[in-house]
Simulated scan of single mutants.
Amino acid sequence: MNLQKYRADLIRFQSFIALFLLCLALSIMSDKFLTVSNAWNVMRQISVNICISTGMTLIVLTAGIDLSVGSVLALCGAITAGLLRNGIEFPSGNLFIGFTLFGAVVAGILTGSALGAFNGWAITKFKVPPFVATLAMLTIARGLTMLWTQGFPISGLGDTFLYFGTGWLLGIPVPVWISGTIVLIAVLITNKTRLGRYIYAIGGNESASKLSGINVSKVKITVYTIAGALAAVGGILVTSRLDSAQPNAGTSYELDSIAAVVIGGTSLSGGRGSILGTVQGAIIIGVLNNGLVLLNVSPFWQQVVKGFVILLAVIIDKSNSKND
């Protein structure tokens, strides 16, 4: 009995243990790691992944997956930057539509929401596996990004827009405030609302959820829509921080997002996990990325290390699932 309790406690705090050991190792190997400036740098960097991973968690809890978040991030960031910088011009009608900062940001988020809703619609309407549907959207969104930008960065977006990604509020970076607010709302949704209960129910047993009267299609479309909107928020933060919308932005972000979700204890089979666990996973990924840079590890080896970390997390997840 004591052994079972010990094992349960170990599983519950495995993310904290991994984070502590990682920080301890990096602090020994690099004297730059345990500094205030580096800590805020890590928090600013992981804010984007937290936004994306929050939406990814909701999807994975329904036993789904979204491989398109990186491309959606790039497209929404580019659309926001393009509308803010250039507006929309209709030469045939001699018409020009300019966008305020608020209008451009809303347009970017609505674009992400629409792409996410399309993913959910394709998955529920045509029974396309989430892996295939979102893989197709990955290619579509990346192609649309190239068409929108013509392959060139969109820069010079103004100091007000830069505040989203580089500003400070009450001594804390603005991206941290934004991602923290998103996490708080997502925690309330998953723990205190009917939608949250439905998400867990669908991931636990979709057939039983249908028989109990849950509109599974509606819930899934809602979840993918939220994930698309949060990817757009991440795109706006990245674009703001760089003062430039890069056509190739968001490459491999979906891998960091999935890694954060799995490391945070959310089961890829659905029905088990939490938003706060994902935040812990995102912090681990962020600290790992930061540590590898401080140690001057080659970017190629960084990919190898992160790949093994993801594989290890999935193995642990499967092992925990068998023993439940």
Rank of each mutant, 00 (worst) to 15 (best):
N2D: 07
L3E: 11
I11G: 01
S15A: 14
L21S: 11
C23A: 14
S27H: 06
D31S: 15
S37T: 12
N38R: 08
W40P: 00
R44N: 10
I50K: 10
G55L: 04
M56H: 02
I59M: 11
L61E: 03
L61Q: 05
I65H: 04
N86A: 12
P91T: 12
F96K: 05
F99G: 01
V106K: 06
A107Q: 10
V128H: 04
V128F: 02
I140W: 00
I140Y: 01
T145I: 04
M146F: 15
W148L: 15
T149M: 07
T149R: 12
T149S: 13
L157N: 07
F161L: 03
F161D: 04
F164I: 06
L169W: 14
L170E: 08
G171V: 07
G180P: 05
T181Y: 10
L188G: 06
T190I: 15
L195K: 08
L195S: 10
G204Y: 09
K210W: 05
V219W: 02
V219M: 05
I221M: 11
A227E: 05
G228N: 07
A229W: 08
A231G: 14
G235F: 09
T239E: 11
N248P: 00
G250R: 04
G250H: 05
Y253V: 11
E254S: 02
L255Q: 10
S267K: 00
G270W: 15
G270D: 09
G271M: 11
R272P: 00
S274N: 10
I283L: 14
V309T: 07
L311M: 15
L311H: 08
I316P: 00
D317A: 00
S321L: 07
S321F: 00
